[in-house]
């Protein structure tokens, strides 16, 4: 061989060190990076399933219609037709699953109605809003209005 390349042993030692370092890195990477990382992108694919693991607390209005179709019929054509049941009655998935397990409370006199219908300059003008004192002398709203069909046509 040419004289210039006669002493190569030191290069082999360096190469061996690099090789060991690279292998150690690959071993560590195999240990620490989860197996399903990178399937869809730079994240652990199992996290998608993790985010689905939560029991809903709201049942949704279709669930209510299964048993309470009389109320649904009463609300049809009223101003509250598109208001969800749970918007006033609270989260009721537990009740939909097992009606005996959770009995919904009837919303109190005016407290729930005024969340939406209390007069405020910030609210759009087309939206029905009243000052409770002027409108009803502080009486409960359901003294006159049926919450499931609030209009008087």
């Amino acid at each position: 061989m040419d004289g210039r390349f006669r002493d190569y042993a030191h290069l082999l030692r360096m190469a061996a060190l690099f090789g060991i370092g690279i292998l150690a890195f690959l071993a560590a990477r195999a240990m620490f990076v989860p197996g399903d990382f990178g399937v869809y992108g730079f994240y652990r694919a199992g996290a998608i399933e993790d985010n689905r693991e939560r029991t809903p607390k709201f049942a949704g209005r279709e669930a209510c219609a299964d048993c309470h179709d009389d109320i649904v019929a009463k609300r049809a054509g009223s101003a509250h037709e598109r208001v969800g049941c749970e918007a006033c009655h609270g989260a009721l998935h537990a009740h939909a699953e097992d009606p005996a397990a959770l009995t919904p409370e009837r919303p109190e006199g005016a407290s729930i109605c005024q969340m939406c219908h209390r007069a405020s300059a910030s609210r759009p003008e087309w939206f029905p809003q009243v000052d409770a004192e002027e409108h009803s002398m502080g009486q409960a709203c359901n003294a006159c209005h049926d919450p499931h069909h609030p209009g008087f046509e």
């Binding site: 060991i20 292998l23 150690a24 690959l26 071993a27 195999a30 240990m31 990076v33 989860p34 197996g35 399903d36 399937v39 869809y40 694919a45 199992g46 998608i48 399933e49 689905r52």
Partner: peptide, 26 residues
């Protein structure tokens, strides 16, 4: 020990992959 290192890293990578399983859609 070189062989042990290489085989262990390959095996642990394969094992992780097996454990993770394929992500299933609902």
């Amino acid at each position: 020990s070189g062989k042990l290192l290489v085989l262990t890293s390959l095996a642990s990578a394969a094992w992780e992959y097996v454990l993770a399983g394929t992500p299933e859609d609902a």
